[in-house]
Design a protein around this nucleic acid. Sequence first.
DNA 1: TGTACATCAGTGAACGCGCGTTCACTGATGTAC
DNA 2: TGTACATCAGTGAACGCGCGTTCACTGATGTAC
Lengths: 205, 205
Amino acid sequence: MLSGPKSYLRENPYMKKSREETAETRQMIVKTAAAEFRKNGLQMGVADLMSAAGLTHGGFYRHFQSKDELVAEACVEALNTLIDSLALTASKNADSGPLKAVVLKYLSTGHRDHPANGCAFAFLGGEIARCEKKTREAVAECYQRLIDLVAGLLPAELGDRGREAQFIVTSMLGAIVMCRIPTDRALSARILNDTAEQIITRYSL
Amino acid sequence: MLSGPKSYLRENPYMKKSREETAETRQMIVKTAAAEFRKNGLQMGVADLMSAAGLTHGGFYRHFQSKDELVAEACVEALNTLIDSLALTASKNADSGPLKAVVLKYLSTGHRDHPANGCAFAFLGGEIARCEKKTREAVAECYQRLIDLVAGLLPAELGDRGREAQFIVTSMLGAIVMCRIPTDRALSARILNDTAEQIITRYSL
DNA sequence: TGTACATCAGTGAACGCGCGTTCACTGATGTAC
DNA sequence: TGTACATCAGTGAACGCGCGTTCACTGATGTAC
């Protein structure tokens, strides 16, 4: 194969370095899109996205078949990064209430005010629900990952930790969706604080 | 004034019937938009919206200064209609658990599958958060209305009914946002049922 | 009451603009021998 | 090693299309006298 006819060459790992660099560029576009979509919504344009990544729009289709493909990957990237960072928060607070730390981090004004690093379920949920099947399924898998993380932080005594985790996650999600609507900062903060307090009290975190 | 010079005529209620009909048409456009926006998102076009209302796009600006003006009114219309219908459900079930009936109606697959009549917080929340101040403030007032409705259905013994209501509403909201993402109907239904069960159990509804 | 005029909701063509996507081209890099 | 050639990420102009908005026009209805 390695010394085979020309038509086979494309399937072999020639030009390794170039391919690695290309993959890095692609990943950088995905990461940029993950931030920009959360800030501006999924209707943000390909040209603006590429320029936020320091490139011009024409090169976009060297990396992606369509904008939809990027949307799917960017949502998954955004969610996995968020879940990783919540898992890190949990392990950093393993001794002093890991779930409490996760809840307080998720329901913080910092989360509310920095959509670029925030929860794509909350910032883009409505739009994702209108996306194509593949995107929705990939995002649903991330949801499962988040549920599993939270379930693992709940006391083993609890009857059905998955169900409790589901409730905790959707509660927090709803609070972040809602708290971003009012322009009244006090009302907004109250939504976050009330929800955090309810969860912490109910689960004695 | 009534017999004053021409320049004053516009301020008087001449052509009463026409003005009423115009107001009805305008209201019909708002109601159509309230449904269409929830189905397709706020980025839905003015031309499609007007054609869904049985009109052509050109007439739009006889009724609204801009699309943003319609967006604000349509969101408020959608939310008030939803809140009214939940209040009706509560009063119909005044004897047999009004809040339980409200929770089960909100967290139903019927709600999930019929966005045209659904909760604009859940279906459009992320997009509304990116709207202009006026829209966000008007929507936040509707949120307060919903909180007050739910708070009024909670037992008076509860310490802070507003806070409890806030938690119930954001939990339900988060569940509806999330349940619309998976294509797996079983997972989707589980999100709704788990949340309903948790709320009903916790508040002994 | 009848006639001439004014109003204005609704129509459909047109506006400039930005969208997702395509394409001919460039130039840096890797391959062939 | 040196030279001729192939690859392909990235560029920027261009594509058709749909967007929000404007405008000259229409025709039904109301007003003036």
